[in-house]
Amino acid sequence: MSGLPATPASSVPVLALGDVLLVTLQGELHDATAEQLQDHISHRIAHHPVPVGGVVIDISGVEIVDSFLGRILAEIAANARLLATRTVVAGMRPAVAITLVELGLTLPGLVTALDVDRALSLLGRGPGSAAPAHPEGDA
């Protein structure tokens, strides 16, 4: 729905880091912005000049994840998977993790990492990517 041109000002920027898309979420996220982001990422994966090697969503700046945002994150990962791309959610805060678990959302399909560095090495990119100890396939 956002069309081809640049996304509106209120939206979340999606940076290309080599063949990896890096999304940094921060502070308050309106529902509409989150939904927009979901479309935008699918669009970027589908139209990227080179095949996208992975999507990293940094949520270290996010103070709460409710079931709505949880669903959006899960759907971004599911959509990416359909487009043959892996998604890693990085930097979830302890309080957010405890709350999500209590809420009943363990998001089993989601691959997670402590921070963006770890996420990149999990995707086989970035420094110290020698041996990804946990390819997500072995779960």
Binding site: E63, I64, D66, A95, V96, T99, L103
Partner: peptide
């Protein structure tokens, strides 16, 4: 506390 705040805000959001 931070965890309780986060839980309450999340509940409020739901």
């Amino acid at each position: 506390g931070l965890v309780q705040q986060t839980k309450l805000v999340t509940a409020a959001s739901e």
